[in-house]
């Protein structure tokens, strides 16, 4: 039996509408701020969207960052401990203003890694904690060569002065430091 062109078009139009409608509904239910409807279907939307269509559009929302995070490190060689260094400073210096460079990505990664270490232990992303060790090990080896024995990390944060006190110097006591145990560099 010869199928009419109109029938074929109708089928594709209808099937496309169903698939796209379902996809759009699932995406919206997962992403919109919590509401009774999305809460009811949380399991289904999570399983569908998070598997292959994971997305998060809360850029600087609900609040922009209100703290600056730093990752200090020091390395131990046969001669003893080096001084504390902030790798962020070095990364920022290397950002030459070329937008097509990979360095801004490294700097953003440094920021998220440093921020993660300041969180309470149960809220930390374990992947980023392990990467911080790796990041510092690579930095120590590139600076002092393969003779590096161990390294240590300090996570440091300072609040951004509130808008009202934007012209005042930040007080030294506003700097918070957490020191992590020494680890061996492999």
């Amino acid at each position: 039996m010869r199928i009419k062109v109109q029938e074929i078009k109708y089928f594709f139009l209808f099937a496309g509408g169903l698939v796209c409608g379902f996809h759009a509904l699932m995406t919206l239910l997962l992403l919109l701020p919590p509401n009774p409807f999305s809460q009811q279907f949380k399991g289904v939307t999570g399983a569908y969207v998070k598997s292959f269509f994971a997305q998060d559009w809360r850029l600087f929302a609900p609040e922009p960052p209100t703290k600056n995070f730093y990752l200090w490190h020091r390395c131990r060689t046969q001669e003893g401990w080096s001084g504390w260094q902030d790798m962020g400073e070095q990364l920022r210096r290397q950002m030459t203003g070329n937008p097509f460079s990979y360095r801004p990505k490294l700097y953003l990664f440094y920021g998220s890694m440093a921020g993660n270490l300041t969180l309470a232990p149960d809220k930390r992303n374990p992947r980023l904690v392990r990467l911080a060790d790796k990041f510092v090990s690579v930095a120590c080896v590139s600076q002092f060569g393969p003779s590096v024995l161990a390294a240590q990390i300090r996570s440091v944060w300072r609040p951004i002065p509130s808008y009202e006190s934007r012209f005042q110097e930040a007080a030294p006591e506003s700097t918070h430091v957490v020191e992590y145990p020494v680890f061996a560099v492999k």
Binding site: L31, W57, R58, P62, E63, P64, P65, N68
Partner: peptide, 29 residues
Amino acid sequence: VVYAVAGLTKIRGNLWTGGVALYYVENAD
């Protein structure tokens, strides 16, 4: 969807509704 989610989440933040959020963004390293 990107804008709907970003916009709806921003209006829940005090710094965005207070009109000073950009100051904080530009002061984050």
